[in-house]
Amino acid sequence: MSAQTAIDIRNLSLTFQTGDGPVYALADANLTIAKGEFVSFIGPSGCGKTTLLRVIADLEQPTSGSISVNGLSPHQARLKRQYGYVFQAPALYPWRTVEANVMLPLEVFGLPKAERRERARKHLDMVRLSGFAKKFPWQLSGGMQQRVSIARALSFEPELLLMDEPFGALDEIVRDQLNEQLVKLWNETRKTVVFVTHSIPEAVFLSSRIVVMSPRPGRIIDVIDCDFGLDRTLDIRESPEFLKVAHRVREGLRAGHSYDE
């Protein structure tokens, strides 16, 4: 494992014990993610993509196998606050203003007030919400709320950003805008991003690598390299290269599904 490795996953399995018997959420996953990569997990629901992200975040415990996050165990990485996590919903605290929501992790970490303010300002700027610092979440649209939650995850400047279908609940127009903004943000910050999605165009547009997963048991069936340059815009989605990658992802998903029938 080199110093450039952000996440290293070896023979990872996770089985949930439920009343109806065991559920094999992840079976024998192997994956290495280098620092600065943008990796998407794509697959149908139940394929374990969110579970895998939660294992990286130490929100779930694997049954077997090994995993390291920035050279640490996920638990140590969580204790050292090595990653920012963006959930499916904005998960903003309704009684806090936009600014106070972004400052929440900084308060938990015990940063002085002046620095909290400064960092909140900087990261709200980054997601283009400077004018909304004093608003409450309900005064913002769904897309703006999710941008606040991204600013909150970035506010303590973690090396690693874990995003669990962050745009899944938004309409396509807003989702397209946010995809473009996220590429710019990634370009500016060069963070390692692990991004869970079930949208093929989103995965192909955003990622430097796409991990295709399939359900029952959740496993990795294909890993696709993908590079459309750092200054890409939404227009590339009509290019033959883009469609070729999208096609390969779709083929992978279809192959994974054939086990069901």
Partner: peptide, 16 residues
């Protein structure tokens, strides 16, 4: 659960 998980990702104490 999501709001509680968020606090966990910050390694927040029970009091926090």
């Amino acid at each position: 659960a999501m709001l509680l998980d968020l606090m966990r990702t910050y390694n927040a104490s029970g009091t926090q």
